[in-house]
Amino acid sequence: MVFLHLFVVNRSGGLIHHRHLSNKAPKIGTNEWLRIGSTFHSLHAIAAEASPVRLPGGKNSNDGIEEMVTGGMVLRSFQTRTGIKFVLTAEPQTPDLGQVLKEIYVLYTECVLKDPFYELEMPIRSELFVHAVDALVERVQNAVSISPTKHR
């Protein structure tokens, strides 16, 4: 029950933020990160296209990968109305990833968008955001370990 990575992809598929959230996460080089970011951006669109049924709303709907479960991790993606994708990976069986992502989005609007020197679609270099995410992750992981829920 450990979070692994957080990365943020902008509207055109560029990676604007990436970090690991625990020591268990594998080390990934910057070039590799850029590749993963843009690959995920395309796969997000392809997944919506490949699905036999689509969400109503055509091109305007936020259709695409929401969750992917693999043998080693679970990946949760949250796309905002403006097209920015927040992607969080964690160990399998971690609950409430979607909720955590929404809180990260709130932190993004609070700490990054309200920064007068931040330019949209550009890499996020806000210390405030990094610290806020750290605090959030710690809070969630402690809450989970204190109250062992039904989730195994």
Partner: peptide, 29 residues
């Protein structure tokens, strides 16, 4: 391609990198 992405994002101790499910807005594969 998802398998490749998953392999680079998963902890290295885990050998099983196969994709089990992919959920999109309207369906799950």
């Amino acid at each position: 391609s998802l398998k490749e992405v998953a392999a680079s994002l998963s902890p290295s101790s885990i050998k099983d990198n196969g994709v089990h499910s992919v959920q999109t807005g309207a369906s799950t594969c």
